[in-house]
């Protein structure tokens, strides 16, 4: 499921638009992010990003889908002061936890 429809108008997005790849971890369900080289991280800051997420997605699921990752999809992110920040409330909640 692509999350690109969730771009957030209130966020200043004059940085270059980027994409990353996310999933949930099989054994415990926590959100994880593709960190390159076949590895995944629970920290969105470890994400590899690209202008075209489909390329990343292809790399992330190259060969058989890694057992660790369930429901892999591309998300929109922005790069601010060297940090990867998800765009859209749903991905922000996934990355940083419930707001209530």
């Amino acid at each position: 499921m692509a999350a690109s429809h969730e771009s957030e108008p209130n966020v200043v997005t004059n940085e270059t638009s980027h994409q990353a790849v996310t999933a949930n971890r099989l054994r415990d369900g926590i959100p994880i992010y593709f960190a390159g080289g076949g590895s995944w991280s629970p920290n969105i800051g470890d994400s590899v990003t690209a202008e075209n997420g489909e390329t990343l997605l292809a790399e992330a699921i190259r060969g058989p889908l890694p057992l660790e990752a369930v429901g892999v999809y591309v998300i929109e992110v922005r790069l601010a002061e060297g940090a990867v920040r998800p765009i859209g409330i749903k991905e922000q909640i996934r990355a940083f936890g419930p707001t209530a």
Binding site: N24, L26, R27, G29, I30, P31, L67, V70, K90, R94
Partner: peptide
């Protein structure tokens, strides 16, 4: 069997749902 890869997510999903286990934003 799911944890060692003998079942795919597609195969396992209806089994876990039948037992009340959903995959949500942060966890199951």
């Amino acid at each position: 069997r799911r944890l060692i890869g003998q079942l795919t997510e597609e195969e396992f999903r209806p089994l876990r749902l039948r037992n009340g286990l959903y995959l949500q934003l942060h966890a199951y």
